[in-house]
């Protein structure tokens, strides 16, 4: 099924991130199909979601590392009701909470598999979906 410009005009606007200086590298990374994670420059701990301070060593200084894009299912839900009208046409959709190899978690929709396959510890890989010219979101696929 193709989506025309007219269809887009009729679809309710989806909620969009409003990145700030702290989170912009994450969203810019997604645009480049890279999953970037914030890392404490002092002690090296990776943290997510982005925040000003390392809760281990209290350093503000940080840099960014590209995640390997591998993880395991921590939990999930399959959504059958859209609480925001922009997601109604996507129903039903599975949102997966993933334990990334780097020790933090990612929440992203499942693509390419029946949600009935989901189990705690199931290996998944991270992929990317270009929503439009300015927004790319992560998704996950069951590892082949």
């Amino acid at each position: 099924m193709t989506t025309t410009a007219d269809d887009h005009a009729r679809l309710p606007a989806r909620p969009r991130p409003e990145p700030d200086a702290l989170s912009a590298p994450y969203w810019d990374g997604l645009r480049a199909h890279k999953l970037m994670l914030q890392r404490c420059h002092a002690c090296g701990r990776v943290r997510h979601y982005p925040r000003p301070l390392c809760d281990h060593c209290y350093a503000f200084e940080h840099d960014w590392v590209e995640a390997r894009g591998e993880g395991r299912v921590h939990s999930w839900t399959v959504c059958h009701h859209a609480f925001h009208p922009a997601f109604k046409q996507a129903l039903p959709y599975a949102l997966v909470t993933v334990d990334l190899a780097e020790g933090v978690r990612l929440q992203a929709p499942l693509r390419g598999s029946d949600p009935a396959r989901l189990r705690v510890e199931l290996p998944v890989v991270v992929d990317f979906e270009d929503i439009d010219d300015t927004l790319t979101l992560p998704c996950v696929r069951v590892r082949a």
Binding site: R14, P17, L95, Q107
Partner: peptide
Amino acid sequence: EFEMVQGCNAPAQ
């Protein structure tokens, strides 16, 4: 910022 944008919008979710 990180969850509502992908359809996680309400307490049930």
